[in-house]
C-alpha cells in the first residue's frame, strides 16, 4: 500500500501523453455535456462513443471496467432505483411495489440521471487513472496556481494513508496494554477516546516539524519555481482544449435557448 498512494496507472498511451489540463478540460466537457445537452440519449451516447473508447485509447480498459463494475454501476444503480420509484412524474404506472409506483416517465428520467452520474464518475476516474498527480500539479503551478495550494492537495493525498497507518500503530500499542477493541460497540467507542490524544497532538507536532523542513528547502522563496518534470503541451493539446470549450458553450447555449 505504501508504494501506491494514487489512482494513477503508468502506461504508455496517447491519453497518458496528453497535457493534464487538456485531460481536465476533457473531463469537465464530458460532464457538462452529459448534464446540459438537450437530447435525451446524450449521456448514453457519451458512454458508448467517448468513455469506453477513451479507456481503450488509454490502455486502461480492464482496470477501468473493474472500477466501473464495483463502484460506479452500483452507485448509479441505486440512484436509478430511488429516482424511478420516488420521482412523482407521469401517470402510466408500469410497476407497483406496495405503495411505491414506477411510471414510464420516472423510469426514463431516472435512467438518464443514472447515466449522467455514470459519465461524471467514470470521466473523473479515467482522468485520475491516466494523470500523475505530480504532473497535474506542476502543470497547474506553471500556469499560475499558487504553489501552496498545490502542496496542500498533494500532501493531503499522501499523508492520509500515513495517518491511517499511525492510528493503527497506536491502536496496536494500546491493545497490547489491554485496550478493549473487540467487545460491544459502545465500549469500543469509549475506548477510542484515549487514542485521539496521541493521534491529534502527534499530528500537530508533525505539522510544525514538516513546516520547518519544507521552509528549510526554500518553500516560501520568492523565486519563480521550476519543475523537475517537463509536462508536454502541444499545439494539438491547445487545439483540443479550444474545441472542447466550444462544445461546452454550444451545449450550455442550446440548453438555455431551448428551455
Amino acid at each position: 500500500m505504501h508504494e501506491r498512494l494514487s489512482f494513477h496507472i503508468k502506461r504508455d498511451s496517447f491519453l497518458h501523453s496528453l497535457n493534464p489540463l487538456t485531460k481536465l478540460v476533457l473531463t469537465l466537457a464530458l460532464i457538462l455535456i452529459a448534464f446540459t445537452f438537450p437530447y435525451y440519449w446524450t449521456p448514453h451516447i457519451l458512454v458508448l462513443a467517448a468513455i469506453i473508447p477513451l479507456s481503450l485509447l488509454g490502455k486502461v480498459f480492464r482496470e477501468f471496467s473493474v472500477t466501473a463494475l464495483r463502484l460506479i454501476i452500483p452507485a448509479a444503480g441505486f440512484l436509478f432505483l430511488m429516482q424511478a420509484f420516488f420521482q412523482p412524474v407521469g401517470t402510466d404506472i408500469i410497476f407497483k411495489f406496495y405503495f411505491l409506483d414506477m411510471t414510464m416517465e420516472s423510469v426514463l428520467f431516472a435512467f438518464r440521471n443514472a447515466m449522467r452520474v455514470f459519465v461524471m464518475v467514470s470521466a473523473f476516474t479515467l482522468f485520475l487513472v491516466t494523470t500523475h498527480p505530480s504532473e497535474l500539479m506542476s502543470d497547474l503551478t506553471r500556469r499560475g496556481l499558487p504553489g501552496q495550494f498545490a502542496y496542500v492537495i498533494i500532501s493531503t493525498l499522501q499523508i492520509l494513508p500515513q495517518m491511517q497507518a499511525k492510528a493503527q500503530t497506536i491502536i496496536s500499542a494500546q491493545r497490547s496494554r489491554g485496550l478493549d477493541t473487540e467487545s460491544s460497540f459502545l465500549k469500543r467507542a469509549g475506548s477510542l477516546i484515549p487514542l485521539i490524544g496521541p493521534l491529534v497532538f502527534g499530528s500537530l507536532v508533525e505539522v510544525e516539524e514538516r513546516a520547518i523542513a519544507i521552509e528549510a528547502r526554500g518553500f516560501t522563496s520568492k523565486q519563480v519555481k521550476t519543475s523537475l518534470h517537463e509536462v508536454p503541451d502541444t499545439a494539438f493539446d491547445q487545439f483540443l482544449r479550444w474545441a472542447l470549450l466550444v462544445f461546452i458553450i454550444i451545449s450550455i447555449g442550446l440548453n438555455l435557448w431551448l428551455s
Binding site: 494514487s6 498545490a150 498533494i154 499522501q158 499523508i159 516539524e209 514538516r210 520547518i212 523542513a213
Partner: peptide
C-alpha cells in the same frame, strides 16, 4: 536537517 526523518519528507513527492 534534523533528527526525525519522517517529518522531513515533504509529502508532496512520489
Amino acid at each position: 536537517a534534523f533528527q526525525n526523518p519522517f517529518n522531513q519528507i515533504s509529502g508532496a513527492k512520489y
